[in-house]
Design a protein around this nucleic acid. Structure first.
Length: 418
RNA sequence: GCUGUGAUGGUGUAGAGGUUAGCACGGUGGGUUGUGGUCCCGCCGGCCCGGGUUCAAUUCCCGGUCACGGCCCCA
């Protein structure tokens, strides 16, 4: 039997309707905030993703060599492509840029629940400003989306911290630069791995036991008060987060947010606020994640531009929505089914369908000689509102019979007045 | 990379060492009906592949393939 590639999905119309519904909600939230859509190729040069920090994402590339022996990869995330686009027009684009996209992204890894080799990842980014209001605006986009699909702050929480927290703590311990990036990648696993495994990994980087202790206790902090008393009022991390939380308060979305120092994110390029959304029950993977990445361009050989953004996959959110009973029942969206009840009237039915279509109704014309029984069943299944019957007697009088499938009401209508 | 479970019409499933392999949806033909959604009847269509055990395997065993989970890890 013909099968698709492992870890990929087919979208039958039933599933495609849901996907479109989800994407429409992505679009709406972004457009409401004045973002513009962009796109880029799925295929990129492999080197766009081969950073040195040892991140998993670079090890899970779906890559190959093309016929010209070029090393290429299916994009595992959108940010590098976006960075490439921004970089090559950096002088020409009016800043700040507010762009979004819903790219299909790929990775080569073992498949699991909520995790295939391909997924769609809503990306929302703001480039060209280091104002904290940009980070707050992104959270507003997120919350607008959640509200749009019917989720509440009872269902999920956006946990937030800043890379600066770790940067300060590690900096005071003499851990800086490349070492800092590597530490972040390990520390990001804190929630998922036993403490001693993390300690071991940190120790193997050459970090002293006392420093490891400091790191672990810092990451356990779950409220701003404790952070303040640890780092002091003047600490850049505290100043940044305080002003961010104040902005989120002004948006009226504070109930969705919690400070959590253990949020670090596995990608090396983050520099400021970082966040993840999780279901409150804690049963699912992270729903989305993002943060500020002001230093990305220099790693790609360009001049840095401040940027902040998030990625939001289509799989985990659908699982959460299903669990909460928020997945809508969608039908084809057809308004009318048009059927001729005799072979001689098929051209007449085409004429009727065209007339209806010109008024903006979506019309499913029955293309074969089908029985009325079939047409009713078909119309019901597809969720059409009306069945339009082209029948010999009525057609002689220039009329068609229209049955409203919800009310059962039936009328003869002039073809001219359709 | 490690590991568990599974594989039965197009889809979703039931089942037993010897069965006409059952059911629902679907497709198709018909009955009822207003040429008419419900309802009723007929028909179409299936045991993943290879090897082994056995008088007999779709069923038990081994291997393969594929699927779905879990671990590692994570867009």
């Amino acid at each position: 039997m013909a099968q698709g590639v492992r870890g990929t999905r087919d979208f039958y119309p039933e599933e495609m309707r849901l996907r479109n519904w989800l994407f429409d909600n992505f679009d709406d939230a972004a457009l409401l905030h004045g973002f513009e859509e962009y796109d880029a190729p799925v295929l990129e040069h492999e080197e766009l993703y081969t950073r040195k920090q040892g991140e998993e994402i670079t090890q899970q590339l779906y890559n190959f060599q093309d016929k010209g022996d070029r090393k290429v990869a299916l994009r595992p995330e959108m940010t590098p492509s976006l960075a490439r686009m921004v970089m090559s027009r950096a002088g020409a684009l009016p800043m700040p840029i507010k762009w979004y996209s819903i790219p299909q992204c790929w990775r080569y890894e073992r498949t699991q629940r909520g995790r295939g080799r391909e997924h769609y990842q809503w990306n929302v980014d703001i480039w060209g400003t280091n104002e904290i209001s940009a980070d707050a605006e992104l959270i507003s986009v997120l919350v607008t989306f959640f509200e749009g699909v019917g989720l509440t702050e009872e269902d999920l929480v956006i946990r937030m911290s800043s890379r600066k927290v770790l940067e300060e703590v590690l900096g005071s311990l003499g851990i800086v630069g490349d070492m800092f990036a590597q530490t972040c990648i390990i520390v990001d696993k804190m929630d998922k791995l036993p403490a001693d495994v993390v300690s071991e990994q940190l120790a193997s980087l050459g970090i002293e036991a006392k420093a490891i202790e400091t790191i672990q206790s810092t990451l356990g902090i779950k409220d701003m008060e404790s952070l303040r008393s640890m780092l002091g009022e003047e600490s850049p991390a505290v100043v940044e987060l305080t002003s961010l939380f104040s902005a989120l308060d002004a948006y009226g979305i504070s109930e969705w947010i919690e400070f959590d120092a253990s949020i670090v994110r596995g990608l090396a390029y983050y520099t400021g606020p970082v966040f993840e959304a999780h279901d409150r029950a804690g049963e699912l993977r992270a729903i989305c994640g993002g943060g500020r990445y002001d230093k990305l361009l220099s790693t790609l050989g360009g001049k840095d531009l401040p940027a902040t953004g998030f990625g939001f996959g289509d799989m985990v959110i659908m699982e959460l929505l299903a669990e909460k009973g928020l997945v809508p029942e969608l039908t084809s969206g057809n308004d009318d089914v048009v059927i001729s009840l005799s072979p001689e009237l098929r051209n007449a039915a085409m004429h009727v369908a065209s007339s209806l279509r010109s008024t903006g109704r979506s019309v499913d014309l029955v293309l074969e000689d089908k029985r009325l029984k079939w047409a009713f069943k078909h119309a019901e299944r597809s969720g059409a509102q009306r069945l339009v019957m082209v029948m010999p007697d009525e057609w002689k009088d220039g009329k068609v019979r229209i049955k409203d499938l919800e009310t059962g009401e039936e009328t003869n209508v002039d073809v001219e007045s359709l």
